[in-house]
């Protein structure tokens, strides 16, 4: 009886521990799975992939908003920091930065009345040292690899044409002391 009871509690504890481990691992697993698809679409790290306006064929992620144009990028800051320059857009837009465990660690986006581009440098603990340039916001990522999800509000068809031009003008490049001197 005592042996059976011991086996019962052992298997109960083990089951709970395994299920809990699954819960803890789920966000990292799911974001990595998503990022692998994005990497194929964007042709590698640190490149944006620009989606069209979501309709019934949109399957990049669940519950897309049909009022937003989405762009996404999988960043990797292991070899160098990343410089990002996003042209202004005079309506709602936001770039959400997400780590490798689905935690959003920073947002940059629309500010009323501002006509300046948003410029920032992203780095992580692994990034080789660099000297922060002037005029750039410095953002630290908790993980070396993560995701940008850029959302632009679309009110009219004209907005789509305008945003195509804006999205083509986004600059993302490896930033190091060397590249800054050039």
């Amino acid at each position: 009886m005592k042996k059976k009871l011991g086996l019962f509690f052992f298997s109960l504890t083990l089951t709970l521990a395994l299920l809990w481990a699954g819960v803890l691992a789920a966000p990292g697993y799911l974001v990595n799975k998503r990022n692998q698809e994005y990497l194929i679409q964007a042709n590698g790290y640190n490149n944006f992939y620009h989606q069209g306006l979501p309709d019934e064929k949109f399957k990049a992620f669940v519950s897309p908003s049909p009022d937003l144009l989405y762009s996404y990028l999988v960043f990797n800051t292991e070899k160098s920091a990343l410089a990002v320059e996003i042209p202004p857009y005079n309506d709602y837009w936001v770039n959400q930065m997400v780590d490798d465990n689905t935690d959003s660690f920073a947002y940059v986006g629309y500010k009323t009345g501002s006509s300046d581009p948003i410029k920032f440098i992203l780095y992580s603990d692994d990034t080789p040292p660099f000297e922060a340039p002037e005029g750039y916001q410095i953002i630290k990522s908790p993980s070396t690899i993560g995701t940008f999800l850029l959302r632009y509000l679309v009110r009219t068809q004209d907005d789509i044409r305008h945003l195509e031009s804006i999205r083509r003008s986004i600059r993302v490049y490896a930033f190091s002391n060397e590249s800054n001197k050039q």
Binding site: V23, L24, A26, P27, L30, V31, R34, F61, V62, S63, Q96, V98, N101, T102, S104, T147, L149
Partner: peptide, 11 residues
Amino acid sequence: TKAIIAKVGIF
């Protein structure tokens, strides 16, 4: 909550 949101509403 984090695991459920990652499944049904990632990002």
